[in-house]
Amino acid sequence: MIEAVDLHVRAAPGERMLIEAMSLRVGAGEVVAVAGPNGAGKSTLLRALAGELRPSAGVAAVCGVPAADWPPRLLARRRAVVSQAVELAFPLTAAEVVALGRLPWHGASGGGAARDAAAVAAALERAGVAHLARRAYATLSGGERQRVQIARALAQLDGAEPPTALLLDEPTASLDAAHRAGLLVTLRGLAAAGTAVLVVLHDLNEAAFVADRVALLSAGRLAACGPPAAVLRPAALAALYGIPFRGRPGDGLLPDFAAAAATPTHRRR
């Protein structure tokens, strides 16, 4: 369970506000997609909920406890984060990267090497990267790396005591269509097993497919939040992004690039 209550986050003390008066709740078993224009505060919201950034006011909580108050290791046994484009400092294999997801469990009761190995193998399988296990991470394509990072997060939450939370920042960005579909199905599966999933997505059709609710962010504030069919309406999106949209949520909702090109006065961000 992840929750933001009247959340305010500043870039630094005394500097400009990145997130203002935002309240959002992702319950156990729920998938909430976060969308919005560049710079709207999507990644900042995710980082605050992950416990990386301390709110300047309000609360960002995981399982009812402010994320910044959790002992880091215990928090890591409840919530995993998939960031964008992780680069390694030293050469590791894909399996070694996934095994890092077991770090929070070292010294935990019921842990142990065999348990970790099983969790790593299951995560590799589930993220569709078992065949890449022995490959050097640096030699993988962007999409393959992304799937390895997703496997690492799955390994981290393997055996975690529910409720758990998974936060993903544009996880589909470098994936092909088939792997996007695979990832979205995996996220639904995790939610069905009781995980609260918060996922930043740019593709509104993906959001419409995977999310129980969609949160639209604009200039650091929550512009709209609700079921995809209610929130992802072309008129509202046009107002948010400053570019015309056509189609219906979940059925070919697209920015109308041709119309945007024809009206050069649209609000570019």
Partner: peptide, 19 residues
Amino acid sequence: MDGSGLRPLAGAAPPATRI
């Protein structure tokens, strides 16, 4: 590094690796 062997990291060590 060279992909020649699966070197489990961070404790995912099967008994063989301990040896």
